[in-house]
């Protein structure tokens, strides 16, 4: 069979779409607080739980949230994983630890990196603090918090955070 008669198995059609996303009212406020170096969540008026980052509603109660509550900057590792495989768009030295962190004053954990700590030493219940980027680099973004690191406080007992894994 001549080359011209070979079946065409695939063609490449590049496509490009640009989107201009809207964060919404609650996230805008959260990001403005981040710009000032503060982590601010919202309390649900019905169940009184504090959400951070808040998206303007309590997903459980289905009502809009308004009351703002400053949380952190310290927190507790509720659960974690040690990443030993590279991922697209993530430029970190392996292995590294990604953890659910329950910030003090918040009622829902937050997904973040743990650094300045050997992966083998990360524990459920470990106390950590936020490490911020240099102040002049702050913007309306999550990335102001570079990562969390351990602090010299006793571990929190499992029963105290088992609802927030």
């Amino acid at each position: 069979m001549s080359e011209a008669k070979q079946p065409i198995k695939s063609i490449v059609t590049p496509s490009r779409l640009e989107y201009d996303f809207t964060p919404g009212i609650a996230t805008t406020r959260f990001l403005r607080h981040m710009e000032e170096g503060r982590i601010v969540g919202q309390r649900c008026a019905e169940c009184t739980k504090v959400y951070v980052p808040a998206r303007g509603s309590c997903p459980r109660c289905g009502v809009a949230t308004k009351e703002e509550v400053e949380v952190g900057p310290n927190g507790t590792v509720t659960t974690f994983c040690v990443v030993r495989v590279p991922s697209e768009n993530i430029d970190l030295t392996l292995p590294y630890t990604a953890a659910h962190i329950l910030l003090d004053g918040a009622d829902i954990p937050f997904f973040a990196l743990i650094q300045e700590c050997d992966a083998a030493d990360v524990r459920m219940g470990m106390r950590v603090e936020a490490v911020w980027a240099a102040k002049e680099e702050w913007g309306p973004t999550f990335e102001n918090i570079r990562y969390f690191r351990p602090i010299d406080e006793p571990d929190v007992p499992f029963d105290d955070f088992k609802e927030h894994l």
Partner: peptide, 11 residues
């Protein structure tokens, strides 16, 4: 609608 997110629109 560039003020609210989807959930804020829907509630």
């Amino acid at each position: 609608e560039n003020r609210r997110n989807e959930v804020e629109m829907l509630i």
